[in-house]
């Protein structure tokens, strides 16, 4: 029982702690790449604390419903991951969160919010097949969808599934809202879509979305680290390397439109996944 509570605690704390730190490091690295100093590493926490202290203002009460559900689903997905549960179930649960966020944005009639929500749905459409294929690939290698079994696997999966790992890279860029695929919530609010899917969220609700995003970040980095699950050090190293690469791509790339995203990621990502799966399992 105690053991279960400890795991639950780890799951609940890991999200804000690691996710927030990752966000802070991201801002520093990005600033340095742009020859700026950047904010302190704790800045994401300051931001969220400030948002939480603001007045609760909504266009539509359903936004609050959707944001709470989003945060709940994101937390649940990470907890399931820490509990080493079923990989596909975790993916379904995180999809639940993503869908609630889009539904919350659809609840406002502002065109910015609406267009943002539809782009968000397109992003989900783009990355979901790849994410599930990653799960399938891991299953085909290890014979189980349970993360507890995957963690006991002796060989690094990345050596067997390199192309699938590359496909996961696409998913991570989209899921972490990085260029060239930050379509739904353009990072800088002065662009064509204002803040897209986040436009009509404010104050505490926006703060909660931010916290949900921390959980998502940790989850996706966790899935990434499963590709070298021989011990905590290689797992952390792989996740850090992947995150650094994504920050680099974010700073080097310009935003693309949805046609390009859907076409390119489906064609390239699905092809990479297919080739890898066929090579390993029907050769």
């Amino acid at each position: 029982m105690n053991h279960a509570l400890i795991i639950l605690g780890i799951g609940l704390v890991a999200g804000p702690l690691l996710g927030g730190l990752a966000g802070g490091l991201d801002r520093i690295v990005t600033a340095r790449l742009q020859a700026r100093t950047g904010p302190p590493v704790w800045q994401p926490y300051y931001d969220v604390i400030k948002l939480m202290a603001k007045e609760l203002v909504v266009v539509n009460g359903w936004q609050a419903f959707c944001v709470y559900s989003y945060l709940f689903a994101s937390m649940l997905a990470l907890i399931l991951f820490v509990m080493q549960s079923d990989l596909l179930l975790i993916l379904f649960t995180q999809a639940l969160g993503a869908v609630f966020l889009a539904m919350g944005a659809l609840a406002s009639t502002s065109p910015y919010s609406q267009v943002g929500a539809h782009r968000e749905l397109l992003q989900i459409l783009t990355y979901e097949p790849l994410l599930f294929l990653v799960g399938v690939g891991i299953f085909l290698e290890t014979g189980s969808f349970k993360i507890s079994v995957v963690m006991q696997w002796k060989d690094p999966l990345i050596l067997k599934l390199p192309l699938l790992f590359a496909a996961l890279g696409y998913v991570m860029i989209i899921k972490l809202r990085k260029s060239p695929f930050d379509l739904a919530a353009s990072h800088h609010a002065h662009q064509e879509l204002v803040r897209g899917v986040f436009t009509d969220f404010s104050g505490p609700l926006l703060g909660m979305i931010e916290i949900g995003h921390w959980y998502d970040t940790v989850l996706i980095l966790g899935i990434c680290s499963l590709f070298w699950a021989t011990g905590p050090v290689p797992m952390a190293a792989l996740a850090a390397a992947a995150y650094a690469t994504i920050i680099l791509i974010d700073n080097a790339a310009a935003r693309l439109n949805w046609r390009w995203m859907l076409g390119h990621v489906w064609a390239m990502g699905l092809a990479l996944a297919l080739v890898n799966l066929i090579c390993r399992h029907q050769g």
Partner: peptide, 30 residues
């Protein structure tokens, strides 16, 4: 592999057409 490729792609499309419908039912005014 062929079946799972078809199923994951179809599943993603399924989420898209359902989610937007549910979202706009809850659209304002409330």
């Amino acid at each position: 592999i062929p079946v799972i490729m078809l199923v994951v792609a179809g599943s993603a499309l399924t989420v898209m057409y359902w989610a937007r419908w549910a979202g706009l039912l809850m659209s304002e005014p409330v």
